[in-house]
Design a binder for these strands. Sequence first.
DNA 1: AATAAAGTTTCATTATAATGAAACTTTATT
DNA 2: AATAAAGTTTCATTATAATGAAACTTTATT
Lengths: 104, 104
Amino acid sequence: MKTYTLDEVQDKIIGKKGTPNRDKFEYELQMDLIGKAIKESRQERKLTQEQLGELVGVQKAQISRLESNASNVTIDTLMKVFTALKAKVKLQVELPNAKFNVAR
Amino acid sequence: MKTYTLDEVQDKIIGKKGTPNRDKFEYELQMDLIGKAIKESRQERKLTQEQLGELVGVQKAQISRLESNASNVTIDTLMKVFTALKAKVKLQVELPNAKFNVAR
DNA sequence: AATAAAGTTTCATTATAATGAAACTTTATT
DNA sequence: AATAAAGTTTCATTATAATGAAACTTTATT
């Protein structure tokens, strides 16, 4: 099976690190994943959009929109959905250490 | 050189588990902790609110409000801030398996 | 093929997130 | 103690997230 480094794939497809396009893509990628995460979680729970909507307290249309990243969701909305799915959600923030830049 | 299959790349981008850590902060994704994450990250970078504001493109007042959870931030806002801080942010969604409940 | 179920899109409305400006307060520096 | 720097709060405005309803499309079932 052919394999790629993460950087190889990303560089080739979307440009080198630090370039505007790359930053934007990674940023959008995060956003895209939100809807994907909701959809996959819902399917894992074997629920229809309508059923999830009932649990959350919204119409199925709204679930559809959330899954398709139709808008820029708030944390509140995100939590309502994942709570309904009985999912544990964590935000992991990693600050790559800048020490080595200084060490030169 | 470490390589990845396409699936592994996906896992890496999405963030499954067992990811490396340096300065890693894990927060339960709750509204009140978002601000804390921003503040601690900013301080880790030794920036004032005004300096971070310049990087993000907003006034220091806005940074202050974000850090104090004055509102229900959107993913977009969150990403703008963490991108300015050169932080990597991952959303971890865990779906506790219901199998064992049934087993009983 | 018909029908039902599931999912999507559009339109319109309401609530509120995002934000600057400026006054204000708290904390640090001299 | 004075002064400067950093951070907070309030007021007002604009953009948009959240949402239902209903028509519509796609997918599954009979």
